[in-house]
Design a protein around this nucleic acid. Structure first.
Lengths: 224, 224
DNA sequence: AGAATGCTTCGATGAGGAACGAACTATGCG
DNA sequence: CGCATAGTTCGTTCCTCATCGAAGCATTCT
């Protein structure tokens, strides 16, 4: 009972699955809104709000209010370091990698991350778009390149449509450990993929499964 | 819902106050028995046993059985690092140092740590005993000096009495951040202090309060 | 102004899990 | 062998806290 700082209080904040998912989602470094975090955590908005209050009160998060949006972010690198340390232990003691499993494999290749595509396919797509100078990437930030508007409108995506949210955002991929494309453009691309029936969402999962012709079409449009 | 390793599982293990106290107690590096940890955590033995099972199952602890004693220790430096990281955050976000409070002050000066004395007085005592070469300290280890047996038997403490447990052990003091004396010798000294009525235990607390003459006697014997 | 969106608060429900006493097992001592 | 000590298991009680629906602010769009 050497009662120094209240470590149990902090750890129990991270100890709830919903909160842990939120913190994990914020490990990418970009601040997210309450709704986004609710989706990430897989809970309802009220529940998420309650969790966010607790994380705020616990000093783990910062809040930036912008209009009616409230962006939550990690309170600092110390908090991020703590999450990393916990993740490291969890990885070390949890050799639960019995076998990747078919759905895990599919998840690794392509899955939904909030409203956009994630996984190997998504990372490859962003790489290719940057390579072709359609998008420009500095470190964590992604901007439209000069040919972006014409390129995307040619395939039926209007990049100016929704000026409220950032068009491009980098989102860290847990399976590949590299960024993929988020923001309204990322969302629009996922919409197109599903609309064109190139792929379908796996039931009760975030996995996205491409049909063979769908994959070809996707590669022709985005990876060419 | 980027579901990597199960960080919530690990964090929730640390998130219980009783378990957090146990882990904290083990941060000193020395393995402790279930009973000792129960006392540290301030819970009953069955409760402690249950917590220890969970910590073992979670991979945070190692177990070394020696006869009827079962020594629990941290599973490794990675776990210790995680605890440190959490402690750092807890310290940073919890500047709840409203006021030390009278009892906290007493605790800081002298308190019971399992079966021995801790706090400023205890740290000063160990320093003085080492200074006089009655005890020898290398880093974390403490051994009896050549004059130890005669010195302690002169004041009625038989250092050879109980060969089963280590006679001397260093125990890290949370308030002073330095070691004090544990082990059978530490326990015997605390016994003597209470037996001679130099001090009494505060009700419902670990604080130990010396009477003015008692303090003088203690200083004469151990700090001279 | 009215409507829509983003988010929080309130209230009720429910489940997990922390706690302890009592009983049981295991190791050591005489 | 019997007694004492060290630990675990079991069963019960209890309380916290996670969850969601409904309703309540707040902000922005039209």
């Amino acid at each position: 009972m050497r009662e120094g700082p209240d470590i149990a209080r902090i750890a129990s904040l991270v100890g709830d699955p919903a909160r842990a998912n939120m913190l994990n989602a914020l490990m990418g470094g970009t601040a997210l809104t309450a709704s986004e975090l609710a989706l990430e955590a897989g809970v309802s908005l009220p529940t998420a709000s309650s969790h966010l209050s607790k994380l705020m009160e616990g000093g783990l998060l910062t809040l930036a209010s912008q209009g009616r949006h409230r962006y939550y972010g990690l309170a600092g690198p110390q908090v991020a370091g703590m999450i990393e340390a916990i993740t490291g232990v969890a990885e070390a003691v949890g050799p639960k990698r019995v076998r990747p499993g078919p759905r895990d494999g599919a998840m690794r290749i392509a899955r939904v991350c909030y409203d956009h595509l994630a996984g190997e396919q998504a990372v490859a797509m962003l790489d290719r778009l940057v390579e072709k100078d359609i998008l420009l990437r500095d470190d964590r930030e992604i901007r439209l390149g000069p040919s972006a508007v014409s390129h995307f409108s040619a395939i039926g995506i209007d990049v100016d449509a929704k000026p409220r949210r950032p068009v491009c955002r980098a989102c860290l991929d847990w399976s590949v450990r590299r960024s993929h494309l988020a923001g309204t453009l990322g969302a629009a691309i996922l919409d197109k993929i599903l609309l064109e029936k190139w792929a379908r969402r796996e039931k009760d999962s975030r996995a996205v499964v491409f049909s063979p012709p769908g994959k070809q079409a996707f590669e022709r449009v985005f990876l060419a």
